[in-house]
């Protein structure tokens, strides 16, 4: 049977990739529900004491897991930082959704202009856009901090949103401009003949046809912002503005942390992205597929 071995190979590599992508998610889910004393004891089977949600309870309500209320337990392993997770999730969602919205708001029209029109300085500005992600973030931390400080935006969410938007915008514009460039020229010429101004051409023709791509790039901007650590750490102030990536780092830095608690925090941090991907991805894939069939 021709094609059989290659199919097996496909499954093998798919499984391998899944191991590296899905594996950690599953591990953190299991780790979050198994008590520390089981995790740390090589002699016990993973599920020998069953699963519980006590660490989840602690994160959301502050009530210590039962095992840590027992004698000889070290409650110091239950880091206070874990209690910041729900708030940081909200912060991160606000920041990431804002960054996503701003990326679409500025990125889509900019990409359209780059894709379809000529204007003075087009080549130069586009080169800047392409090259700017090549500058290491570390090199930008100090100048960006000074800039935001002079604007009075350090320690605020607005500051982080601004930086995250700026960091994702080159990708948004690049991806969307490729998409807009692929749209048939005649469609836009027809729009010109139908009395559309440039803005109307964008708004009434290009935008409705590129919703799947815009969804995908928006998701990309969301995830970039959600997982960004360096600027979030430098620019965020107290717990009220701290995004989830900063809180996670604080948790993981503690060597005596409860593993179960850490896993719980990790899994909670993954959930918003998972939900968004599941919600948006279907829409994106459907859109891309219907576009692939020649219209």
């Amino acid at each position: 049977m021709p094609g059989r071995p290659s199919r097996l190979l496909t499954f093998f590599f798919a499984a391998l990739i899944l191991l590296f992508t899905g594996g950690p998610v599953i591990l953190s889910l299991i780790g979050s529900m198994v008590p520390d004393r089981v995790l740390f004891d090589d002699g016990k089977g993973l599920f020998s004491e069953g699963l519980n949600f006590e660490t989840y309870r602690y994160i959301f309500t502050g009530q210590l897991p039962d095992s840590y209320s027992a004698e000889n337990a070290n409650p110091a392993m239950i880091s206070d930082a874990a209690r910041q997770v729900p708030r940081s999730l909200l912060n991160s969602s606000i920041v990431a959704l804002s960054s996503m919205a701003l990326n679409i708001l500025f990125g889509a029209p900019a990409a359209f202009a780059f894709a379809r029109y000529f204007f003075p300085g087009k080549g130069l500005t586009f080169m800047f856009l392409i090259l700017s992600p090549l500058v290491p973030s570390v090199a930008l931390v100090t100048p960006v901090y000074i800039m935001l400080q002079s604007l009075g935006l350090t320690g605020t969410q607005a500051g982080i949103i601004l930086v995250h938007t700026a960091k994702a915008l080159p990708f948004t514009i690049l991806i969307l401009s490729v998409f807009f460039r692929k749209m048939p020229n005649e469609l836009f010429e027809a729009a010109v003949l139908d009395h559309c101004s440039r803005f109307q051409t964008f708004f009434r023709i290009a935008l409705p046809l590129s919703l799947p791509s815009i969804g995908a790039t928006g998701l990309f901007a969301f995830m970039l912002s959600y997982s960004e650590y360096m600027f979030s750490m430098v620019l965020s102030g107290d717990a009220a503005t701290r995004p989830v990536s900063v809180v996670m780092a604080a948790l993981a830095r503690n060597t005596d942390v409860s593993w179960s608690l850490l896993n719980t925090a990790i899994f909670i941090a993954i959930v918003p992205t998972l939900v968004l991907v599941v919600l948006v991805w279907r829409f994106v894939v459907e859109g891309l597929l219907s576009g692939a069939v020649k219209g």
Binding site: P184, L187, E189, A190, V192, L193, H195, C196, L209
Partner: peptide
């Protein structure tokens, strides 16, 4: 401007708006 020339054009690819 093209729109004000009193012409209408039929394109090879039809160029109908898909949405």
């Amino acid at each position: 401007a093209a729109a004000d020339r009193g012409i209408a054009m039929v394109f090879q690819s039809y160029a109908l708006y898909p949405h």
